[in-house]
Design a protein around this nucleic acid. Structure first.
Length: 411
RNA sequence: GGGGAGGUUCCCGAGCGGUCAAAGGGGGCAGACUGUAAAUCUGUUGCUUCGGCUUCGAAGGUUCGAAUCCUUCUCUCCCCA
């Protein structure tokens, strides 16, 4: 079997490693237990959280043992790495709900059922820590001088850093130590912003466990070539929970990715062979456009299942190829009664009642700027009415701009 | 605890008694161009029954009139202890 390190490298999951040769050897020798941390500060993971999950999936496929560490304890504090603001504190109760929400999402990519993968929660050992004991046993191994040299803290020193956040590194290091003791975990992986915390954890293990060796590996932070934040849209993050981000929107996110990112996204977010990813990403013009359709389908299939992916693809095709034919099932929609259309409904009111427009003013703008369409026909009369004559085959398709569709099912 | 600087529309940031729904930039939306890409250009960007209505940390007050002045409260940042 190929060394897991090579797999990560060729798919773009490798930024730096504390001891590459040592880790390579370790991977060759047998199963390595590794972990990555997740912050249950929200009810659902979003696309931006996925990189570590994919990396874990690759390592698991290569025969290694993953531990997903939910930061049930640390979520109450907030990691200062890469952030300029202190995070809101949330209750244990909310954290518990968040963990329940995220678990099945992790399971889409990581196999918990038929394997020895572990889902841990650091609240188990952090929640009841004794402050004095912790300072004595753990705190004494940390040098403030040293911590202040870490990039994550340096930046925050200018903006302000609370003592609580300053302690994050100790807690994360302690996590690594605990996982090492409990499960023999010897490798921590994470985004490159975690480098400092990972290294600190390794050092703690070395000191407290009498020279036990551990490793750290980080992946590059995945950014979009257009500078937009990964997984963020105008509407906000693209979540994995279909109630927060519809499968259709999820699909559309990948469908609309910049050309320059296609190869990278295939490598990172699908399990297609490397060669194929490169080919798909190297395509030009119409061909790369088709690559994006494939990308959207593959990623949607992985995270929402084949059936949902088919629906989203069919809905997108139906919407973009002129409206006729195709399955519109996956398109955002609502139901209205036929009686509502007898008198006719003002276009502005209708658009404003859907997710296409947030207010009537916005609808007015849209219509007067010639951005609205009904059943594929431009509709620019602000005072126009939508009535029964617009109902075609029991539905009305509204369109805002070039690619936002909404389907009204008339009963 | 003492002193100072501030909180403006999605974000940054002007405004400092009327001409302010509030400059400018970013972002967003729409149009043109395209490939459901990028870049570019143009328009637009509080809500509205189009009469008005609600916004400038919160509550009061002064004024014909306040984002702009006064009082109290609150939050943030900085300096000193």
């Amino acid at each position: 079997m190929r060394n897991a390190l090579d797999i990560l490298k060729e798919r773009g999951f490798f930024k730096q490693c504390t001891d590459e040769e040592g880790l390579r050897k370790k991977f060759d020798e047998g199963q390595v237990t590794f972990y990555a941390g997740f912050d249950p500060t929200g009810p659902s993971l979003h696309i931006g959280h996925l990189v570590p999950v994919y990396a874990m999936a690759h390592l698991q496929k290569a025969g290694h043992k993953p531990i997903c560490l939910m930061g049930g304890g640390t979520a109450r504090i907030g990691d200062p790495s890469g952030k300029t603001e202190m995070r809101k504190m949330i209750s244990y109760e909310e954290i518990g709900r968040n963990i329940e929400g995220q678990k099945p999402q992790l399971a889409k990519l990581i196999d918990f059922e038929g394997s020895d993968a572990i889902l841990a929660n650091n609240a188990d050992w952090l929640a009841d820590l004794n402050y004095i004991d912790f300072l004595r046993d753990i705190g004494r191994h940390f040098s403030v001088n040293r911590m202040l040299t870490f990039e994550a803290y340096k930046q925050r020193l200018e903006r302000g850093l609370s003592f609580i956040e300053f302690n994050y590194q100790l807690l994360q290091s302690y996590d690594f130590l605990e996982l090492n003791r409990r499960f023999g975990c010897t490798l921590q992986i994470g985004g490159d912003d975690q480098w400092g915390n990972i290294v600190a954890g390794m050092e703690l293990i070395r000191r407290m466990e009498d020279g036990v060796e551990s490793f750290g590996l980080t992946f590059p932070l995945i950014a979009r070539s257009d500078g937009k934040k990964m997984g963020k849209t105008e509407k906000g993050a693209v979540f994995l929970n279909p109630e927060m981000t519809s499968v259709y929107d999820f699909y559309q996110y990948w469908r609309n990715v910049p050309d320059a990112d296609v190869e990278k996204f295939f490598l990172t977010f699908t399990f297609l062979p490397v060669e194929e990813c490169k080919e798909l990403g190297a395509a030009k013009d119409q061909a790369i456009n088709e690559s994006k359709e494939r990308l959207a389908y593959e990623v949607t299939k992985l995270l929402h299942g084949e059936e949902e992916a088919e629906k989203a693809r069919a809905a997108a095709k139906a919407a973009f190829s002129g409206g006729a034919g195709g399955d519109k099932e996956g398109m955002p929609s609502c139901e209205m009664s036929a009686a509502d259309f007898e008198q006719g409904i003002n276009v502005l009111d209708l658009f404003a009642s859907t997710e296409l427009c947030a207010s009537k003013s916005e609808a007015r703008r849209l219509v007067s700027q010639n951005g609205a369409a009904v059943n594929g026909e431009k509709f620019s009369d602000v005072d126009g009415l939508i009535n029964a004559s617009h109902v075609q085959e029991g539905e009305i398709i509204l369109k805002a701009g070039k690619k936002r569709f909404f389907r009204i099912i008339v009963k």
